[in-house]
Computed example of a mutant assay.
Amino acid sequence: MAEPKVYSSVEELRGAVGEQLGYTDWTEIDQRRIDLFAEATGDHQWIHVDPEKAKEGPFGTTIAHGYLTLSLLPLFAPQLLAVEGVRMGVNYGTNKVRFPAPVPVGSRLRSTARISEVTDVPGGVQVAMVFTVEREGGEKPVCVAESVSRFHL
């Protein structure tokens, strides 16, 4: 498993703004994961869940939902970064999300991230990180998203 960059304190994290983190492990996107995401969200569009019809579609196969790819950030983040001395972290939101390329079924994805901002908030700090999710063998990223988390002290 990928080893996260460990920051020994929030102060050390503040000094890391602009730092590019390493890479996560690869995660395979199979049809079962796509189908479960469709079930959870109610998005059953054929390009995601109908392999036979999708063969004739624009991608030649089913593709993952963009929001499925985005939903992997909580899987990827702990593989990239850990901060000692915090009680917990929570997702606060996203500032910008783009899906520059599709994720065909069977793809393997991994992520890297750059720490873009660390600001004080009551009881802790808010951390913005720009994640870039790539597909093995792909030319363009499949997701670029600035995710915002809060670490409570």
Rank of each mutant, 00 (worst) to 15 (best):
L81G: 06
S116W: 00
V133T: 15
T112N: 13
A82L: 12
G60D: 07
V121G: 10
L153F: 08
Q45V: 02
G22V: 12
K53S: 04
P51S: 04
A128W: 04
E12Y: 13
R135H: 10
G137E: 07
E136S: 05
Q45M: 04
L109W: 05
M1Y: 08
G15F: 03
A101R: 01
D120A: 14
F37T: 06
P51W: 12
E3M: 12
F76H: 08
G137V: 03
P122Q: 11
G57P: 12
Q20Y: 08
H152G: 06
A38P: 01
K140V: 09
K5Q: 15
G22Y: 08
G42N: 10
V148D: 06
F99L: 04
W46H: 09
D25I: 08
N91W: 02
K5A: 15
I29D: 07
E84P: 01
E11R: 00
D43L: 12
A2P: 07
P104C: 03
R14V: 01
T62V: 09
G124M: 02
W46S: 05
R98H: 05
D120R: 12
G22N: 12
L70I: 03
S116D: 15
L81P: 00
G89H: 00
G124Y: 00
H152A: 11
R98D: 07
G137Q: 03
G42E: 02
Y92E: 02
H48L: 00
G66C: 03
A128F: 06
A40T: 09
G18M: 01
V97S: 10
G15Q: 11
S9W: 07
T94E: 15
R87T: 09
E56C: 03
D35H: 08
G15W: 05
W46Y: 12
L36P: 09
Y67K: 03
R110P: 14
Q126A: 08
T119S: 14
S149P: 00
G123K: 13
S116N: 09
W46C: 02
E117D: 13
D43Y: 13
V83D: 01
G124V: 00
S116T: 15
K5E: 15
P104K: 01
V6M: 05
T24K: 09
E28I: 11
A77I: 07
L109E: 14
H44Y: 13
V121M: 08
A64L: 03
H48N: 02
V127L: 04
V118Q: 02
Q79W: 14
E136K: 10
A101L: 03
G22M: 06
A38S: 13
E56R: 02
